[in-house]
Design a protein around this nucleic acid. Sequence first.
DNA 1: GCTATTTGACCTGC
DNA 2: GCAGGTCAAATAGC
Length: 327
Amino acid sequence: MEHKSLITELTQGKEMAIQLKTHLPSPPPPGSSPQALIFLTEMIQSSFENALLLLNWNPKDPSEEEEEPTKNKRKNSSRDVLLKRRKLLPKWTEEVKVGSGSAAEGPLNDGHSWRKYGQKDIHGANFPRCYYRCTHRNVRGCLATKQVQKSDNDPNIFEVTYRGQHTCNQSANLGLISVSNRNEIPEETHQNQQNPNSEILFNFGEQQHFGLKTEDFDDVFPPFCFGSETVDEDVFLEQMMEPGFVADGNWSAAAVSSATSETAWDLSGYGGEIQGVQSSEQSNMTEMVSATTSVTNSPIGNGDWELSLDKIDFDQFFHFDRLDFIS
DNA sequence: GCTATTTGACCTGC
DNA sequence: GCAGGTCAAATAGC
């Protein structure tokens, strides 16, 4: 009953977010970019959708418990729904290079706790693919999964495909994240020409909302924790709306930059063994993940902004999939 | 005893 | 029919 009311409320919230998007002023208010407004409304909508997803998933849903246990649980319709939802989850790929002699056979510690649930020999691949899901899946309904497979070309390289966002709010102890302004990186440097100190690149496949092929950096930028404090999302949203935050394309740098020229990726989560990561196609996000940092063009690239960022923990549903939004 | 891993079976999409 | 992805019972490790 309570559960149902909650779903009703969330559904209404989602619908209102959709309506809000349709009522966005055109042209946008001074100082605001249309992309930013659309992005925000979609963020709101996304949050509601994820909340609904979590509620529907709840394994303790009485309606599910009442179901007669059948021999073949895979026929369960709720399970089918879950599988369909899972298919729609954002997906991206990283290539992680590990040092020789490392314990890389494991799930590659990326700050989240994973539980292996399967391994499969892949046709045409020299190495099997391992399947991991979030340890907190049963407890918190976190649908995040990842697949780890050794590269055929280089056994030291693991292709890690993430799917879904962590809804368990695990705190990945990744530290500073430095991101460069895509506008400041020559096109030819978008791939494999990142700062050698921070060679973690990404492959973002599948879904595109705004064009940029990444959906979720929750793992890549695990919940965007800058410091130990929790997010003040309002502060972030408010500042994100500042003129120039989006319009000049510096938002990403400002949002996740430590404003330092040093490599800011704290890869200790990978056991400190990451030596480099290679990117393949569609690395639209590679420009966002660079050691090179420059936010000088951005009004938020000042000390005050950095200070406020110390408290920012990006919303777990924050989607960096807005190319138009960035450009 | 609890938790994680292994592995064969099952399901789904192409 | 095949390949990829997931489930879940069996097993191992603590």
